[in-house]
Design a protein around this nucleic acid. Sequence first.
RNA 1: GCGACCGUGGCGGAAUUGGCAGACGCGCUGGACUUAGAAUCCAGUAUUGACAAGAUGUAUGAGUUCAAGUCUCUUCGGUCGCACCA
Length: 811
Amino acid sequence: MAKEYDFKATEKKWQDYWYNNRVFEVSEDTKKPKFYALIEFPYPSGSGLHLGHIKAFSSMEIIARKKRLEGYNVLFPIGYDAFGLPTENYAMRTKLHPRQVTDRNIEMFEKQLKSIGYSFCWERTVDTTDPDFYKWTQWIFLKMFEKGLAYKSHTNVNFCPECKVVLANEESQGGVCDRCGSDVVQREKDVWFLKIRDYAEKLLDGLSEVDFPERIKIEQQNWIGRSEGAEITFNVKEKNNLHSCQLEVYTTRPDTLYGVTFLVVSPEHPILDEFAQYIENAEEVLAYREQARNKKEFDRLNMNKEKTGVVVKGIFAKNPVTSAKLPIFTADYVMLGYGTGAIMAVPAHDQRDWDFAKKYKLKIIQVIEGGNIKEEAYVAKDSGRLINSPLINGLTVKEAIPKMTGYLKLRGLGGPKTDYKMKDWAFNRQRYWGEPIPIINCPHCGQVPVPFEELPLKLPELEDITPTDDASSPLSKCTDWVSVKCPKCGADAKRETDTMPQWAGSSWYFLRYMSPQDANFAVNPDAYKYWGQVDWYNGGMEHVTRHLIYSRFWNRFLYDIGVITHKEPYARRSAQGLILGSDGEKMSKSKGNTVDTAEVLDMYGADVLRAFILFLGDYEKPAPWQADGIKGCVRFFNRIWNLTDLLSDKPCDTSDLNLDALIKKVDDDYESVKFNTAIAAVMTAVNTIYNRGLVTLNEFKTILLLVYPIAPHMTSELYHNVFNGYIEQEMFPQYDELKLISDTVEIPVQEAGKLRGRIVVPVDSDEATVIKEIKRLGIIKNRKITKSIYVKNRIINLITSVDWVDSFKDD
RNA sequence: GCGACCGUGGCGGAAUUGGCAGACGCGCUGGACUUAGAAUCCAGUAUUGACAAGAUGUAUGAGUUCAAGUCUCUUCGGUCGCACCA
């Protein structure tokens, strides 16, 4: 009987061995193929590693360990996305410096990650809050500024009164703050933006050359939200012709231009200011604007709500094709941020316009055949026919759209226009713990970049880092730091006091891993030439519309300015599903359904924890935690541990276990993120061996190597005990294609689709042989086979009829 | 409202992509070894049936097919994303 497996001692022993001997540290080695496996680096929060981290990291851990056994030079780095609000808030509460908090948390994370046995390249660890790192974050920002992609603009922004920061669109979905859940309010502010919209088309195109799950591509496409339409120019006049100007509207349905009966502009629309002195009910209009501004975004977006609006008296618009006079409304169902902030309303064919027209008793003109516009708007399909539209009568919608757009363009009344839902990226926070934006505001020269040589522009030491109520950055309190001479003209100037948002560092960290210490380049060109693109990136679905888009954007920008040579940062991306509480709900402290990682680790060890998390179910789908189920993995590993008792050099019959098929199954499953079925396959093999009672040395070694990526501690120990070497110096098992097929095959016999029995025949047997065997075994009695469908080596299905002669013969 | 995904035993989940439904694991039942068992091993475990032949069975109802968990349509239920996007 083998000695008890002491997981605590064994795991400690191998972790010490790996980390002290730099087993996973790598350098560029052109003699070996490279493989870059990446996980989303963690935010080093005070609560430490949770099960989700372990699930997220374990997939790439398995791939990294496997690829090394396959002869790849594997870059599998780790780092910390350490700027951010939780650290800052905690620091304020405890009167510690965020630096101290961050360092302490990073230290804790490193210890915890090492206790799981991850094979990270520890010497390449990056920390986004390290000035040597954020020097290059600032450098990239300045490059964007240089190219006109970073600009400051005075606008209405989403503001969280609780966190006291401006939020990006991505962070205020549903009108609530992404982080604290408070209602977001609108505020006017000077805000830095990155022109991600300029990259909308490139970000869409890039999706076709990467291997991402379809759902991720779709989410990104929806987020970018490309729509093809037209911009149409309407003339707007004061009723006595005292003032006029042009108003652009955006529409995807220029074919319905004859059906326009009014225009609607968003309450913030500048045309209301343009005509301010002529608007007869200016007070009412301004009051409405004020009301819309103060409305919580959530209410404004709640579309069950009845539509409201105000007619703008004293001005009207002219339909460019009919010259009809159109009233102008302002209503909050039109958003300033999308299109032109103004629409042409076609109540006959748009439900929102229809609702509005009904409420305010406006004209409804049908221009496409069909539906019943007295009851509801008729949203026509491509094949609908135009009516009441002299220029395009009789055409289908599909034909009418380009014709109308072309007509408008010819007359200078508009033309085709592509629009995107994605807005420019609000790129600043009014908080301390972030990268300072390296810009100097000079009274003479305007915005002047901090010279490259002066980077990193370090965060100044600051006694009080609390944000101010007027929503300006705590850095503004640090007057020594703020006051500076303009690098251009030498005049007294002031530093930008806003910091970058948390997403900045993570937008390019994967490049820094390639040459983390390089003092001259964000990414060293030689290192980049070798490591290049990330081969496989695993992360969460929650980052698909933020981090994943932002980092693709930065990567593409760096490509455009010649810093790097791959358009896309990640060749392949996978996404783990959440681990839910045992009640099937999302884990949360308030629900009390969380699992203490340290406790599980202490009770069962790292190998079991890693294996069980992957065994829970489909890796890419959410799965509830099953506290009892972990025993299955404990037993499985104990059985592997005790296989040494069954080791034998005597020849034994191994025909019950097709080792080549097992290798192929596990290999394929690892590569396609199906860890649960890979583990199940090895479990089956181990069960088979136990039933047999003996295991060959070759089988034993193969099983160790197959399980090694998941359970490296135990398999290292077993390998060392039995083979006297280091398992990581072995090769991953290879399978022989020829041995995947045995000489005989079992074929199910169906009668009209119902299973009647099974026969064993030589591989590739023809139909006659199979039927002969079926008759020999008497599987089909008393019936005559009238038809048979035979799929070679798979199945045979017989259609039969009762045949008395046959039945007598059989008797 | 739009988009994507999903619904399989007591539970988590498998199913070579149209070809033996329920792999593997938990739990449960019985047995073995034990003073003992939360250890370990063996056997059984979808439902129904004389625990025999068989019949039924993948949310629902229809359809395609020699053959449907898998494809098409219907209804119901759930998860996620976007959302007055013009």
